[in-house]
Design a protein around this nucleic acid. Sequence first.
DNA 1: AATGAATGAGGGTTCATTCAT
DNA 2: AATGAATGAACCCTCATTCAT
Lengths: 228, 228, 228, 228
Amino acid sequence: MPASRPKVPTRQRRKQARPQELLDAALELFVERGFAATKMEDVATLAGVSKGTLYLYYTSKEDLLKAVIRERLSNEIAIGAAAVAGHAGSCAELLRTLIEQWWLRVYDSPASGVFKLIITEVRSFPDIAAYYHREVVEPGTRLIGAVVARGIASGEFRRVDVEAAVHSLILPMVMLCIHKHSVGACEPFAARLDPRDFVHRHVELLLVALAAPQTRKAPATPARKKNA
Amino acid sequence: MPASRPKVPTRQRRKQARPQELLDAALELFVERGFAATKMEDVATLAGVSKGTLYLYYTSKEDLLKAVIRERLSNEIAIGAAAVAGHAGSCAELLRTLIEQWWLRVYDSPASGVFKLIITEVRSFPDIAAYYHREVVEPGTRLIGAVVARGIASGEFRRVDVEAAVHSLILPMVMLCIHKHSVGACEPFAARLDPRDFVHRHVELLLVALAAPQTRKAPATPARKKNA
Amino acid sequence: MPASRPKVPTRQRRKQARPQELLDAALELFVERGFAATKMEDVATLAGVSKGTLYLYYTSKEDLLKAVIRERLSNEIAIGAAAVAGHAGSCAELLRTLIEQWWLRVYDSPASGVFKLIITEVRSFPDIAAYYHREVVEPGTRLIGAVVARGIASGEFRRVDVEAAVHSLILPMVMLCIHKHSVGACEPFAARLDPRDFVHRHVELLLVALAAPQTRKAPATPARKKNA
Amino acid sequence: MPASRPKVPTRQRRKQARPQELLDAALELFVERGFAATKMEDVATLAGVSKGTLYLYYTSKEDLLKAVIRERLSNEIAIGAAAVAGHAGSCAELLRTLIEQWWLRVYDSPASGVFKLIITEVRSFPDIAAYYHREVVEPGTRLIGAVVARGIASGEFRRVDVEAAVHSLILPMVMLCIHKHSVGACEPFAARLDPRDFVHRHVELLLVALAAPQTRKAPATPARKKNA
DNA sequence: AATGAATGAGGGTTCATTCAT
DNA sequence: AATGAATGAACCCTCATTCAT
């Protein structure tokens, strides 16, 4: 079997796969070192091509940056929206799903790095801000906000300020992504905070805060083993 | 934005104030443009000195970066700790004070930029991580954590996981600082989120989540005018 | 400007015409932009082939340059020589014919660009100089020089230095070609000098200078409409 | 005496002389190799500075090119104009002076290279054309044209077309400059044409053509030794 | 102490040339 | 024969750092 494929990657096959490979390499290095400190040559080398090849696909370093950001965010929101649409249970249950399923998937994927990338580079490339708001912040806020609003309407949640609640819920998740690619990536501090454990506790804590008085039965903070 | 540096080049004043002026200029530019994208010359110019002079005070760009970070964080924690020590009321009240007084002061000061700076540069200068953890994360976590723990011990709070609760409380605040210096600094998106309003609602929301059952009286989300 | 190349990619036509098309495209671009500033790809594109194909016909950019120069000059001199051979009238008449017929044809053809090309590139490719002298300068000078010498011998012309007279006659013509492809090609300065009008007056002026005293009847500079 | 000047070039002194040194080096190389084929580093090296220093004085290669052209042409025309203004003799004598004194000075100076430079680069930098016309072509044409016109008015010259005569007179001179820096610079063809001899004969020939009939006494083309 | 001219290594980008298809 | 993807040497320009004044 290994001998039967002589040297599979025909020119054509490579041509197809190349852009994705380049974007992956670029994302990794941009997130790790920052945009300005990353050399185009290193991106090329990591992707297994020469410097010149990179420029066959992206006309400049800035172009590459924007492609990296666009490519990674386009579909994540759509996936979350689908999760909401196809859900049947209570709003609390839906929020649990959204955060623990959808968001943790983002956290685990390379897309998590895009948050750090945006944070670090918006000031230098201001049109990223518009894109980010339009494609990520607004749909994301609307998505979670709709669930909270529905919960309030149905009497499941208290009458809180929807937008603030969404931020209380979401910002720590974003921060977690950013942390993963900054301080969290530095050896001795990597394991200080178990993300899955924290996310679980965070959602439960906020659901307590949101729950309408009659519904609330103080959960016994179930024995979830930490750092495991 | 920091108050515009007074352009009074009095020799006397200068010698004394020089290092601070250099650090201020460096912080402003490092936060705005990123470390790698900032030119030493621009720092010097902004501080009103020549390129050469900068090197009389800091031996290299990296040295300047580390000085910037160190200088800005040293005393903030101490101030918070003092606030805790001199407090008399309930734990809920103390948390309100800590977050709304102490933290908003940090948010308003140039120190808020340091969070973005650390996020962006730790991977390139890993020893920043150790410093940041020792001087900021750990004392900060311990400070807030102690208040939460005391609240649990006194029966004022539910028996939640202290560390997770601290993170639920603190991470949005850190995120706010980072936002202020990234997306928040981009013209059309600056005013989307009023930080003081959000901070208030965030603390109140979390205090509801923390409150022990008998104590809890669902607050009617008091009329705090939004965006004002 | 050469007549726009018909874009008829008939396989049959192509194989035959290919080398000429490539040379035409190369000449046009080399003259317009200079050799170093012209990209092989642009030559290929203008000729309607791919980059690789260009290398099937010419092994390098330098090779292409030399082919371009050689191709364009080979037969022009021969044409002029034929004009001389087949002429019957006076030497003055013959010079008029040579300059106004033969040379203006060169001026109008793409070959005129070759002068600029040689001027710009000889220093980088010195063997062009030898070729140019052997194939163009010497035969050309000899051609015109023979006419002048014949005129002197027959008493039609004064006893001037032949070589200098030839240069006085020819250099402005060469300069005209060069001008056409440099300053003359820049929009607002294109029409400042009508070449046909100047050429006519130039020849007549020099013929006055050459004419033996007894022959000379000062021509009334006949009414040739300027700039038409 | 050599020991008394320890190492004269103080920083200040160099700073003054630098721009001229850089322009000299740039002109030499641009004329020799062409603009595109000249490396900024080579210009710097020839001028005895490092690559970076070049950029302290000229912001880009193009900027350097334009400075080179401007610097070399500014005063040449003025010098010629002064020669005309301060002249007393006949128009023929004045033309002799202008061409043989003024123009040969240009020919001998590095400024002669600028003609080649303009020829080669106008198409790539079209605003050079405007500058060249305004500063060189027009004043130069007007200068010579005025002398010819005065000769006609005084009856010294025939009633020829002034502009055409000026071109017949001038174009060979320009061509000589261009030749000097192209084919003329190639070893085996350097000595083919003695410029001083040709210039002399060219002027005399044209003066014969210009002379009004009564004035004309066919000069015996005095024995000027060729190639000496 | 302060300056700013000078340096030169380094990085983004281009393009002549090659070669698998 | 023809293509165009891939290469990598080369070049323009920047900027951290040095050092003579």
